[in-house]
């Protein structure tokens, strides 16, 4: 049996009197991507900080690659890559110098700087100082930095926050590739589409508690309605018809509609992750 890459049990943390993380438990297998989904202040970043050893939990346990965090912090971090929400790169150094420096912190005498930069589309800016980089370029370099040590566990805190669509796609491709390589990926985001796109499972977190963990598909199906919406042209107006998939007549009606020249669109009515979150938390992800 494969042991979990990350196993978190009953984790708690408080900032003064305020409980930021309250009994969080989950596990993550190697090669799996778990999206930690919640609004700002839900406890995502605090959970991440404890997992990467930046904060010591008030109670609970964290096991990463069979070792205990924070007791065995140094060894765990040797096998972990972290992409922070803030763009904490050395602006006076070039892209290559940043990667080489972090490679040395991992004890790596040489790293494939060009290969890493090529993966994030920055090879042509190899020797340019980070101070001249756009936000998107910095974020891509942050991703490259997180991969310097070919990590077994990859922790990504809002990796596409504020990125242009092209940079966001590049970052998501990297995440998929790393997961396919076998890295366990823990991803925090408040972007439901990103979580849906990248995650094998998502965990909804709100007010420091995990509300539910499941695959995006399961959640959407469980909480959506099994129906199809057909929109047809009706003179100068548009006519909308909703048909339940539970109705035995629906398949025939849908098949017939496909031959109707007035048919404009046909949609399933599955729930979005946002809908599911609202159902669990009673609030939206944006807040």
């Amino acid at each position: 049996m494969t042991q979990p890459a990350i196993d978190v049990t009953d984790l708690t943390f408080a900032y003064g009197e305020k409980m930021a993380v309250d009994g969080v438990s989950f596990s993550l297998a190697p090669g799996e991507t778990l999206g930690l989904l919640g609004p700002n202040g839900a406890g995502k970043s605090t959970t991440i900080k404890m997992i990467i050893g930046q904060l010591r939990p008030k109670s609970g346990s964290i096991s990463i690659l069979g070792r205990t965090m924070p007791d065995d912090r140094d060894r765990i971090q040797a096998q972990m890559g972290v992409c922070f929400e803030e763009k904490n790169l050395y602006a006076a150094m070039s892209a290559a110098e940043n990667l080489k420096f972090f490679g040395r912190l991992f004890g790596l005498k040489s790293i494939d700087v060009d290969g890493l930069l090529e993966r994030v589309g920055l090879l042509d800016r190899r020797d340019d100082r980070v101070s001249s980089f756009s936000k998107g370029m910095r974020q891509r370099l942050m991703m490259a930095r997180a991969l310097v040590n070919t990590p077994d566990v990859l922790v990504l805190d809002e990796p596409t926050d504020g990125l242009d669509p092209v940079s966001a796609i590049a970052v998501r491709d990297l995440v998929r590739t790393e997961a396919a390589r076998g890295a366990a990926v823990l991803l925090t985001t408040h972007d439901m589409h990103e979580a849906d796109d990248l995650s094998d499972r998502v965990a909804f977190i709100n007010a420091g508690r995990i509300l539910v963990i499941n695959t995006p598909e399961s959640l959407k199906i469980q909480h959506g309605s099994r129906a199809v919406t057909l929109r047809r042209r009706a003179g100068t107006k548009v006519d909308e018809q909703i048909m339940s998939l539970a109705d035995p007549e629906t398949p025939g009606l849908v098949a017939a509609a496909l031959g109707d020249p007035d048919l404009l669109t046909m949609h399933t009515r599955e729930a979005t992750l946002e809908d599911v979150f609202v159902e669990y938390a009673g609030r939206g992800l944006a807040g």
Partner: peptide, 28 residues
């Protein structure tokens, strides 16, 4: 449809040996 709990892909076992998890040393 994806299963409710993800089935891990075929991957190598989690590395735990001292060699793989080596700390580079404070001096370095």
């Amino acid at each position: 449809m994806t299963a409710p709990t993800a089935a891990p892909r075929e991957i190598p076992p989690t590395p735990t040996s001292d060699q793989e998890a080596r700390h580079p040393g404070s001096a370095s």
